[in-house]
């Protein structure tokens, strides 16, 4: 066992983990932050995307030990301080960017990473950035639209809801 200490959504947390403990398991089982979803566990689907030191990574393909000392952000820390949805989350709701919601935490975390890097992406750039996020429900269209809207761009010209 190794002890790890990291900042998760602004709070310092510690725990004892095995070498093989995945970051996704540490978040879900030890910290009870179950918003980070496990869709595939094989680095394909992106439901588990979190930010480690500001970068989007797949929590199912990283060990908890590797996040020792890091600054981690998960979906649980995305809402505004008063508990209202942040601009990306609100845009997903407004534009029907989710159906079952399973992929949504990863989508929101990827979108946040994209908009930090590229505040006004083109539709093509949004689609390219979501290459590693799979959604079984929506057909992606409204997810792309929500992210474009969250970036402050006019999405009225993008086809049907």
């Amino acid at each position: 066992m190794a002890s790890v200490t990291m900042t998760v959504n602004g709070k310092s947390v510690s725990g004892d983990v095995e070498g093989r403990t995945l970051m996704s398991d540490f978040l879900r089982n030890d910290l009870r932050l179950t918003g980070t979803h496990i869709g595939c566990d094989t680095s394909q689907c992106g439901a588990c995307v979190i930010h480690v030191n500001g970068e989007a990574v797949k929590a199912c393909t990283m060990f908890a030990v590797e996040a020792d000392g890091a600054d981690v952000a998960t979906i649980e820390g995305q809402a505004n301080a008063d508990g209202s949805l942040n601009v990306i989350q609100q845009a997903f709701q407004d534009h029907h960017g989710l159906q079952c919601g399973f992929c949504t935490p990863g989508m929101v975390m990827s979108a946040a990473a994209l908009l930090k890097e590229n505040p006004t992406p083109t539709e093509r750039e949004v689609r390219e950035y979501l290459e590693g996020n799979i959604c079984r429900c929506t057909g992606y269209h409204n997810i792309v639209k929500a992210i474009m809207a969250a970036s402050g761009q006019d999405v009225s010209a993008i086809a049907a809801e």
Binding site: S43, G46, A56, T61, S110, G132
Partner: peptide, 9 residues
């Protein structure tokens, strides 16, 4: 290569 999260690791 892959996708953004893969490229970050």
């Amino acid at each position: 290569i892959g996708d953004p999260a893969v490229r970050n690791r």
